[in-house]
Amino acid sequence: MTPLLEVSRLTKEFTRKRGLFGEASTIRAVDEVSFAIVEGETFGLVGESGSGKTTTGRCILRLIEPTSGEVRFKGDNVLAFSRARLRQARREMQIVFQDPYSSLNPRMRVRAIVEEPLVIHKIGTRVERRARVAELFELVGLDPSHLSRYPHQFSGGQRQRIGLARALALNPSLVIADEPVSALDVSVQAQVINLLMDLQERLKLTYLFIAHDLRLVRHICSRVAVMYLGRIVETGPTEAIFAAPAHPYTRALLSAIPVPDPSVPRQRIVLDPDSFDRRAPLKELKAGHFAAV
């Protein structure tokens, strides 16, 4: 089975200059990242701030141009696409952002926000688009009678649903969800996660789920990749990694999750960055479970 998305040796370097005459230095935010996602699965990209997980997501859509590497979507090399072809491809690859407060234009009515992708891609007549927007609103569990409201009239969870409706407007097959619930209240997070799972089933969606909440990742992802300082240090089936994390960073990360049960004894492992080789290549430990050890 060909994967829906295949990322190989994706690299993004940022250069920065220290002062006016200073030497330019290069930072590899994403360092030879490779993974593949098959249709219908939820693949988790996990890491802390600065690990490069968000940059990876944006490079796939070319919202940020990668320095090198390859991104294949349905077999075609996205990085070689012309602007027109890229625009076409983006109909099938959509993104949901973390912050539902800053990702929706506060001056547009939500109807226009959800309709915008249809307008840009010149899909349907005005009437058809209106009908589609109402349908999308219902799909994400919102009341279509609220379509002429502005974003500030909705709660955080509702705004994230609006962002999702917009992302789904063009019938994408891949949705990159970048920390879609981390800005939401705990009691609302579960609602949005349930919605994401429902939509996946109904619309046969494939998710690249970028997150730092490992409890959540364990719950919804079939496979994960753990990023540390721009590199994937461990990847494989979620249960295999949670059951037997092999990389020191993965171990430290998993042990740091606060357990919501005071009767569970805590065994915290603190990462010793000198205890492993940062350049070590990924090795297969068990079927599909790789670690850079």
Binding site: S155, A190, N194, M197, I220
Partner: peptide
């Protein structure tokens, strides 16, 4: 009870027990 129940856990992929509505 609702808050504790909505924490992801249990069978992976199962629906989370969300509290309905908003504050």
């Amino acid at each position: 009870r609702g808050l504790l129940a909505s924490i992801p856990g249990g069978e992976p992929g199962s629906r989370l027990r969300a509290i309905q509505g908003t504050v």
